[in-house]
Simulated scan of single mutants.
Amino acid sequence: MAAHTSQSVAKAAGDESDVARGRSRRTDGPQRAANRGGLKRAFATHWYAWAMIAPVVLVLGIIIGWPLVRGVYLSLTDANERNVARTIGANHIEATYTFVGLDNYTAVLSDPVFWQRLVWTVVWTVACVTVTFALGLALANMLNRDFKGRAFYRMALILPWAVPGFVSVFAWRFLFNRDNGILNKLLDGGGIAAIPWLDDPTWAKLSVITVNVWLGIPFMMVALLGGLQSIPGELYEAAEMDGATTWQRFRHITLPGLRSVSMTVILLSTIWTFNMFPVIFLLTRGGPGDSTEILVTQAFREAFVSSPRDFAGSATWGVLILALLMIFALVYRRALRKQGEVW
């Protein structure tokens, strides 16, 4: 009797599962058809938007997608200036480089130079972003108040952003000149010995950080100023009436109100600083020695300075830089999600 009952239950369960599978098959087909119909309707309704973004997508695919794919491919070969395709006069020499797999990545990751460059790049990025954010936030708070000449100060503080980067770097290079620079002239007038701004490794590192901070403050200040102006003034008034101090208002109103803007500008500033080639190359060229070389300048050196020029090695450095930034962005995104931020 018990066996008969168990068989009946099993049969009933099987019948129910068959019915469920049949129902799933009947509903999956219409659902897929509905999705396809929805896509067709969306395309028919918004065809103008698709037409407008198509050229942008095409251009981005050409100027970003193709070089990226080509770079990844070269990083898996032994390409250099001696074995790539080239034309000398009327003669065309075919490429003879070969596929080597992950050998280049193994070589770079086992090279102490890579880790030295990575450590300094991380230190340089963290220092620049931290100081830039702190100063930008301080200036944004000051400019968010009503005072005489506020428009002039805003314009003056945004000016470094308007000047082309290479012009600013060359101006700073002149200021840092050991013999004729204005900074050392001022120090000499005060009886202080000249500082080897760009000739000593430690001073050179401080110099490049200073210049990059000076270039990055306007962007940080403008973004944070916009965030400050979006915080309702009633919150500050209510907190002040409740007896909150200036620090308490800043901590409990300003910082939470700027969280979304802060997360975005920190991410962008980190990516830009990590790849800030012009400041390092134009100010110190990675020197003195190789003390200020970062990952991106080392990739440039592999492709255009080393002999023979190592295109595969440079591509490998570039792919590793991209991978590091992608990992950082993913970790950063996960951290934002845990904090309840949407990104």
Results as ranks from 00 to 15, higher is better:
A329F: 07
A329E: 03
A239Q: 06
A315M: 03
L68I: 01
F300Q: 04
A90N: 13
A335N: 04
T77N: 04
L330N: 11
R86T: 07
L187F: 02
I294A: 01
R145E: 13
L76D: 05
E293G: 03
Q298D: 02
D310T: 09
Y332S: 00
E16S: 15
D15V: 13
S260Q: 10
R82I: 09
I209F: 00
N91S: 14
P232W: 06
E302M: 15
S168F: 12
A12Q: 07
V57M: 04
R25L: 04
A13Y: 10
V9G: 06
N184Q: 03
L175C: 04
T297C: 03
L336E: 10
V319T: 03
W214A: 00
S8C: 13
K185W: 15
N104V: 08
Y153F: 13
N177G: 02
E240C: 08
T264P: 14
E240H: 11
I53L: 07
V9I: 09
I192D: 07
R334E: 14
L137Y: 11
I253Q: 00
T246G: 15
D15N: 11
T210Q: 14
R82K: 13
W115A: 02
N80P: 04
Q248P: 09
R301L: 06
I280E: 02
Q229P: 00
V84K: 06
V100C: 11
N275M: 04
L187H: 02
M221A: 09
W161C: 06
A204P: 08
I182M: 11
R36Q: 14
A315N: 07
F274R: 01
A151C: 12
T292A: 00
E234F: 07
R301Y: 14
W197H: 00
R333A: 14
Y97F: 15
R150T: 07
N83Q: 03
K205C: 04
D78R: 00
W343V: 15
V131K: 06
T284S: 00
D179S: 08
L325E: 02
Y73A: 12
A79C: 01
E234Y: 11
S260I: 15
L228R: 03
G287Q: 00
D290H: 14
L186R: 15
Q339F: 10
L135N: 10
Y97T: 07
G136T: 07
V57Q: 01
W120P: 05
F43E: 01
